[in-house]
Every structure is written in structure tokens, then in C-alpha cells.
């Protein structure tokens, strides 16, 4: 029965969610082990992003001179931080099944456990590497022109980030299944993401694209970036309304439910290929 399948899938996902102490610890351990040999540890996540954004801001403000350089720097900084977080989550998820193959093959643990661990790991990267930058960009605009700050900023920002987390959940499941079942197509994903970055108005204004603006409209990654970024760029023209944010959030909730059902239906097949 479809209702039973839906309930069973959501129950399975929720039971893995309740193990938050476990997957948050293993996710944090994974991040720690990446930088264990360095002196600055996980701070390198932030420093690497700051270095990248500084250089990119320096270059792009020269290539695309702007009337409002403060806004443009905030535009570049927030775009780069959010985009790299989204794409690194997708790329990492492609090898999710392979990375956890021993645990998948030898334990009865719910596969959603590994999805949540991966999302937590990416959120930690985001929190350490991108959140300080986003806060700085937010404050930078405030120092420049506080008059444009509205009271509805906070709900819009919260909705934007909720969309971001749900998008990460959907793509984590999608990419992990793609990596497990369509390994040839998953080899093309890094190239597609790179092309997507270069052809989307992440580091430049959308007006630069001219007649190729359609590329950004049909790019789901850029749409999510816009939904997350626009509330943070409150000092500029706000192209993403609250209604759009709500519609996006509802659509992602539906997508999350569908992906939960699909992933749950693959749980035993993943065990045999792990």
C-alpha cells in the first residue's frame, strides 16, 4: 500500500534522525581527522574560504566594475560560500555508499544514518567555513547602509537556510544512489558542476548573461543559491519574495519525502552492492 510505504520510509528516516548523538559524533570525527596533522585544525576550512573569496573578489571587481562595490563583494562572498558548500556536498555524496561500504555490508543500521552523518559533516564545514563569512557580509552591508534593513529579514533568512538544508538532503540521497548505480554518469558530475558554476551568475551579476539568462533560470543549483543568497543581500534589490521562498520550501519538503521513499526502497539493494 502506498500509504504504508510512505509511513515506513518516514519512520525509518526518523529513527535514524533520533540517533543524532551518534551521527553527529562520527561526522565531527570525520572533519577532525581531515585536519588532525595541521596546527590550525578545522580553522583551515574558514581560512581557505577567506583566501578564495578575497582573491576572487579582487579579480571580479576589476573584471565587472560595480557602482556599489560593498554590495558586489557581499554578492560574491555569499555566492561563493553557499555554492561551494552545495557542490562539495553533492560531490562527497557520490561516494557515500563506497565510503560506508563496510558498515552497510555488516550492520543492520538504517542507511539514513549515513545520509544524516554526511549532511552533518557538510553543515559543520558550512558553519565553520562559510557562516562567519556570511555574517561578515551581512554586517558589511549594515555598515554601508542600514536603512534598507527590514524586520522580515529574519524569517526570510531562516526560510532560505531551511531550503538549503532540504536541498542538501535531496541531493545527498540522489547523488549517493547515482554513485552506487550509475557510476559512469557520476563521473560527469564534477564537470557539470564546474560548468554550472562558470555559466551561472554566482560571481557576476545576472545582467552580464544577457540573452543567455535562460541558463540561470533552468539551473536548479542557481535557483537554490538565489533562494539562500537573496535574503542575505538585503541592501540590494530583493528579487526573491517571501511567497517564492515559501513555495520553494514546500516543493523541497515534497522532494525530501519522495527521496526518503526512494532511498528506503533501495536499502537492501545497497547492502548487496556495498
Amino acid at each position: 500500500m502506498p500509504t504504508n510505504i510512505c509511513i515506513d520510509s518516514i519512520t525509518e528516516s526518523y529513527s535514524a534522525l533520533k540517533d543524532y548523538r551518534a551521527w553527529s559524533f562520527t561526522g565531527w570525527s570525520r572533519l577532525r581527522s581531515r585536519f588532525l596533522k595541521t596546527k590550525l585544525g578545522t580553522l583551515w576550512v574558514l581560512l581557505a574560504n577567506i583566501l578564495s573569496i578575497s582573491i576572487l573578489a579582487l579579480v571580479y571587481t576589476q573584471i565587472f566594475p560595480s557602482e556599489d562595490p560593498v554590495y558586489f563583494i557581499a554578492y560574491i562572498g555569499t555566492g561563493y560560500a553557499i555554492w561551494t558548500s552545495m557542490t562539495s556536498s553533492m560531490l562527497s555524496s557520490l561516494s557515500l555508499v563506497e565510503y560506508h561500504s563496510d558498515r552497510i555490508a555488516n550492520t543492520r543500521r538504517s542507511h539514513f544514518f549515513y545520509v544524516y552523518e554526511e549532511i552533518y559533516y557538510q553543515l559543520l564545514n558550512f558553519a565553520i567555513g562559510c557562516l562567519p563569512i556570511l555574517v561578515f557580509m551581512f554586517l558589511l552591508q549594515m555598515a554601508d547602509d542600514i536603512s534598507a534593513l527590514e524586520i522580515m529579514i529574519l524569517p526570510r533568512v531562516i526560510l532560505g537556510f531551511s531550503c538549503y538544508i532540504m536541498f542538501m538532503y535531496v541531493t545527498c540521497i540522489g547523488c549517493s544512489l547515482m554513485g552506487a548505480y550509475l557510476p559512469d554518469i557520476s563521473q560527469v558530475v564534477p564537470a557539470i558542476l564546474q560548468l554550472s558554476f562558470l555559466t551561472s551568475p554566482v560571481m557576476f551579476s545576472s545582467s552580464v548573461l544577457g540573452r543567455y539568462a535562460l541558463l540561470s533560470v533552468i539551473n536548479p543549483l542557481y535557483l537554490i543559491l538565489k533562494v539562500v543568497r537573496d535574503p542575505l543581500l538585503w541592501s540590494g534589490v530583493n528579487e526573491t519574495s517571501l511567497a517564492t521562498l515559501i513555495v520553494c520550501a514546500v516543493a523541497l519538503m515534497a522532494a525530501s519525502t519522495v527521496m526518503t521513499i526512494i532511498y528506503n526502497s533501495f536499502r537492501y539493494k545497497l547492502t548487496s552492492i556495498a
Binding site: 570525527s29 581527522s33 563496510d102
Partner: peptide, 11 residues
């Protein structure tokens, strides 16, 4: 069944 640690061996 499996005998792998749940964390990286760097830890």
C-alpha cells in the same frame, strides 16, 4: 560481523 572501527584510524 565487521571488524572496522567507526572512526578514522588517525583518531
Amino acid at each position: 560481523l565487521g571488524r572496522a572501527f567507526l572512526v578514522s584510524e588517525e583518531l
